[in-house]
Every structure is written in structure tokens, then in C-alpha cells.
Design a protein around this nucleic acid. Structure first.
Lengths: 182, 182
DNA sequence: ATCCTCTATGCAACTCGTTTCATAGGCAAG
DNA sequence: CTTGCCTATGAAACGAGTTGCATAGAGGAT
């Protein structure tokens, strides 16, 4: 149950409302942790009850009021404790791998189209990551070498980039294999 | 909800009991789809009701009876239909990535130990995959070039190998980064 | 003798995550 | 002037997945 901690990290990097968090989970954080606004609102309420975050109502003109959240000392302590816990093995679920093995018993050309579409998605994602890296971690505006937060964000992004490159190479392997056996 | 289809594929590759399936989900299939025996038994029952699989009671000596499952024509059709459906984007959840970004606000040496342990797990997994490849896909007993099932199983395994290699390289990057900022 | 593990299946309770619906004002496009 | 999107939050229901417990005989270890 690391959603709690993902939210804590995001709020530590920058406090904000549930809505703002939900948007971050569609972008930067969402690269390695997905969550809907429903989940986020529910978890924020629970964490507020437990005293991990504090909320502040912010009235706005022309817009609905919002609840601005920040991490409390108890929240920091909870995150720190979690960092010491061993990582439980992540449960893997790759639809595409199931489909590939399933293609031995079904329509292989249908899979081929799917793989090509899938490849485009990952190519776009790689381009997106690279643009983000260019924007945030190179050039004059880049964080300094001693900026721990920036360095850690960057190494996670590099992980995403490596993953996408690996995936693209593998998908080419899959396409070549599908062509070979047909 | 691809667990149904993962079970169908596994049963098409080789029919068997729920218990046998559960063991496969601890090995080959488990490389890209995890499932507990509870889930498997439940889904098998449901698929039997829906007519996707047929069951046959097998009495055994010195062991509990078992229910041997095989995929029906309706099950094959359901799998084929699923192969034509577009793959929905997989929801990503990387505890380690959350922890790495969380390390900006907590104990970095604790994370370092965790990453090293994590690295060992992935090194072992890579060795395991490579041993499986050596055993099943090289040498004289290897499936022929025209064996679609073997070729497709192999390309999925190559994906796992590529993933582990990429992960190991990235974890080295993470370790170097952690050392650099401390 | 007793404990543990393996085979083999299943119920019940629970947690986590997704989907659908609801509210409500502002703003832009057609 | 109506339709739809954006901000902002939330309830309710559902579905998927996990954990704990139960049963039960065979065989091996201590």
C-alpha cells in the first residue's frame, strides 16, 4: 500500500490540493504510480484523520474552494519508517506477454497490429520522457549536482527512459519473430 | 481482467489441475502474471460455469482427487476475441521509484541497503531466466524454427531477460547517484 | 511419536482500485 | 444559447486481489 507514501512524497516535493495531486498523477508521478482522483481524495481524508497531513481550506474567486494539504511531522516520520521496510516483490501483470503466448492458438495478424500500435505508444512515451529530461535536467535551469531532490527525480526519470528504450527494442524483436513464423 | 486469458493460454499450452496451474504461476507464467491459488480456483470455477473450460475428476491413490481442466471451443473463441481487443494501458506501480524520490526527505543510507538487496534479487532472476533459456531454447532439444508456440514462449522470455538486464544497469545508476549525493 | 512438507481444493473476510454518478460555477466555441 | 470542458470535491457500488483459515491423507525428518 504505497499510494499513501507516493502522495506523501509528492506533497513533500510540493504541497497542494487533491485535484492538483490528481493531475501530477497523470504526469510526473504517474510515470511510476497511477491513481485516480477518487483514490487520492479518499487517501487524503484518511491521512488527515491519522494526522499525517494537515489541510487548509482555500477560498477562490470564480472557482470552487479547495483544500490545500501539507505533510505533518507525523507524516514525515511515517514515510521515513516506510523507507526502512523491505520492498515486497512487485506483482507483475503484462497483458501483452499473455497475448503473445496466446497468439500460438489464435489470429497472429491481429496481434501484429496490436504490437505495432503498442510500439507507437511506447515511442511516444519515450519522446515525452526525453522532452521532460531536456526541459528539467539539462541546460542552465538544471538543478545543481548537490540538489538531492533533483538528482533523485532525474535518476527515476532515467529509469523510465531506459525502460522505454528496452521495451522498443524488445517489441522489434517480437515483430521480427511474428514475421518469421508466419 | 486478463487472468482468465492467462489461465486459458496456460491450459492450451498444457491442460492440468488448478494446483498444477498455481505452480506454473510460480514459474514460467508467473514471470509476467502473478496469481495465488485462491484466484485460480475461483476463476476456474467461473470459467467452467461459462463453458470456457471443461473439468474431469481424476481419482488418485495416496493423494487427494484432482479436477483436470481443458479449454473448450468456447474458451478458444473467447481467447481469440480477446486477442482482437486493444490492450488497455497497464497501470504502473514501482515501489522502488517512490522510495527513491522519498529518499530526498529521509534516510538515504537505508535506501542504499534496500537498493543493494533489490539488485541481488534481480541478478538472481536474470540468472534464473538465462538458465531457463539455456535449458529450453538452445541445444539439440530446442524447438524448431517453425514451432510457433516455442518461438513465442522464447520471445517472451527474451523480454524478461532484457527487462532484468535493463533493471540491473539502472540500479547501478541509482547506486552511483546515491553515492554521489552523500 | 511428533512435526513438517507436499498434494489438492475451497470458504470467508478484507483491502485496494475502478467506475459511475452528482454537484456547481466559469469560460470558450459553435 | 447550448453544448462541452475545466476546476474542485465527494458518495456509492462494484470488481479484483490478498490473507487467513480449514480439511485431509501420504511421506519424510527428528
Amino acid at each position: 500500500m504505497a499510494l499513501d507514501h507516493a502522495i506523501l512524497v509528492s506533497l513533500l516535493e510540493k504541497p497542494g490540493s487533491g485535484y492538483e495531486l490528481a493531475r501530477r498523477f497523470d504526469r510526473s508521478i504517474g510515470y511510476f504510480w497511477t491513481a485516480t482522483h477518487q483514490q487520492i481524495y479518499r487517501v487524503l481524508k484518511r491521512m488527515e484523520r491519522e494526522g499525517w497531513v494537515t489541510a487548509r481550506e482555500v477560498a477562490q474567486r470564480g472557482r470552487p474552494d479547495k483544500r490545500h494539504y501539507a505533510v505533518s511531522e507525523a507524516g514525515r516520520a511515517a514515510l521515513s519508517a516506510w523507507l526502512h521496510e523491505p520492498i515486497e516483490p512487485e506483482s507483475v501483470r503484462h497483458d501483452l506477454a499473455v497475448k503473445i503466448r496466446g497468439a500460438a492458438f489464435g489470429d497472429r495478424t491481429a496481434l501484429l497490429r496490436e504490437v505495432e500500435r503498442y510500439r507507437q505508444v511506447h515511442a511516444a512515451r519515450l519522446a515525452h520522457y526525453l522532452a521532460g529530461e531536456e526541459r528539467d535536467f539539462t541546460g542552465p535551469g538544471a538543478p545543481g549536482r548537490q540538489d538531492a531532490m533533483g538528482e533523485l527525480q532525474h535518476v527515476v526519470l532515467r529509469g523510465g527512459i531506459a525502460y522505454e528504450r528496452m521495451t522498443l527494442a524488445w517489441l522489434d524483436d517480437v515483430l521480427a519473430t511474428l514475421h518469421r513464423i508466419s
